[in-house]
Nucleic acid binder design. Structure first.
Lengths: 241, 241
DNA sequence: CGCCGACGTCCGTGTTTCGTAAGGAGCCGA
DNA sequence: TCGGCTCCTTACGAAACACGGACGTCGGCG
């Protein structure tokens, strides 16, 4: 009995975010049997962390979450890269629907829902967005720096850089948002997905990144320090060709 | 029937380089229907010649070409001028990806690919490489002075000013409210966010700012003193060009 | 089990920036 | 011209800040 639906992309990665263990369990079970690789998260920060570790092909997102709500999670996720999102909303709550669509959800399912319906929607959205997982997620290139988010590779002037996960994400974020100054808090939120924590963590990772991409790490030109504010990625600092 | 997708840059010129007539035909067809002006070349020299005749806005380049290969074509093309390039590579060939990164492709598509995906990538790259002119993006400009709050950069007649936080905020406030006179109390409230404090603080910072932006700090023309009142930012004083 | 890399945290240090004080110069009205 | 008030200028101590080095932990891998 071929249980796998015709359009289930083999091994597409789905991240399920719901604070209700029962719901998450059922949904996970169905998606798993449908042939997807399923990851689970119980709240917003958890979701962002897991997404950072393994970028999902689609996110099933409960609108109501403890702490950071679904809209916020969706917005931040989109900050890292384009990803289709299916929202789970309270029954017939029109406001929720509107909010969901505004924030850019690709579809929504109202509770209570049938798990089979959800699976169908997942398939549908994946089919719809499949040819374009790369709109905006293509190669990032600024000056002599190139980052390939899909392959998780980065090069400078043609030579490959060996970056750690954090360094890579940090650099990728900078390439996606060149020229702007970011406070450590923002970087911590956008790259780490944390709302709190020691900000010196950011400082240290910036230093480590600099050590790998700057010609003279003591006098950085690519990732500049904005005194009293944070850091800024300067496109002009990347050794142009 | 308006077939043109919303994001097609009107009449952008795309050069398709592929030695396989079938592939070239299909790609050309899709790009043409998407609203682009498409040119075709079957090999390297041909591509260079056509590029010389009509410089393209973007090149879709097969990596495998008879004679001169895609990397060489890309390199030579770049020698004549900056142009975005999308590489067509063999499926999942990691080496090709690396090569694409090194040689400076802006994106790559692995064969076999869906023509629709290619069109989306073309749009994406064109959108990316043609950054919208920063109009209404919060950039403040008066005369020769320019302040970019997001980047936290300030320039005078094109040369960068190195301002401290307070100086920057002060200047930004002035640029946002030109021509009006402000009491020290107001500046302290608006820029510092304090309702109390030594007003000489404002005086000193105004002086420091003057030292960095005035041609002759002893006879300030940009930030003028309004006797018995406070200070006024005078647009006419900014060295217009 | 031990090794090693990645990560987050902490601390000492040098530098930058800030706020205030104080003396001198400038402006204004009598 | 003089006195009073305002503004300019300089200087300085204190605080804030960024940086580099180092350490302990955790997890993966041999």
């Amino acid at each position: 009995m071929e249980q796998r639906p015709p359009h289930a992309e083999a091994g597409a990665r789905v991240l399920v975010v719901d604070d209700d263990p029962t719901v998450a369990e059922i949904v996970t079970g169905y998606l798993d049997r449908a042939g997807y690789v399923v990851d689970r998260a119980g709240d917003g920060p958890d979701a962002l962390a897991r997404a950072a570790a393994h970028w999902p092909d689609l996110v099933v997102l409960d609108l109501m979450l403890p702490g950071m709500d679904g809209l916020e999670v969706c917005r931040r996720m989109r900050g890292h890269g384009p990803v289709p999102v299916i929202m789970l909303t309270a029954r017939g709550d029109e406001d929720d629907r509107i909010l969901g669509l505004e924030v850019g959800a690709d579809d929504y399912v109202t509770k209570p829902f049938s798990p089979r319906e959800l699976v169908l929607r997942v398939e549908s959205v994946l089919r719809r967005t499949r040819p374009a997982p790369a709109v905006g997620s293509g190669l990032l290139r600024v000056g002599g720096l190139a980052v390939d988010p899909a392959a998780r590779r980065a090069t400078k002037n043609g030579t490959e850089l060996s970056l750690t996960i954090r360094e890579f994400d940090l650099l990728a974020f900078f390439l996606r948002n060149p020229g702007r100054a970011y406070a450590r808090e923002e970087l911590m939120r956008e790259v780490w997905g944390w709302d709190f924590g020691d900000l010196s963590t950011v400082t240290v990772h910036v230093r480590r990144l600099r050590g790998k991409i700057e010609d003279d790490p003591a006098r950085p030109r690519i990732v500049q320090t904005v005194w009293g504010v944070g850091y800024r990625f300067d496109p002009a600092g990347t050794g142009e060709e």
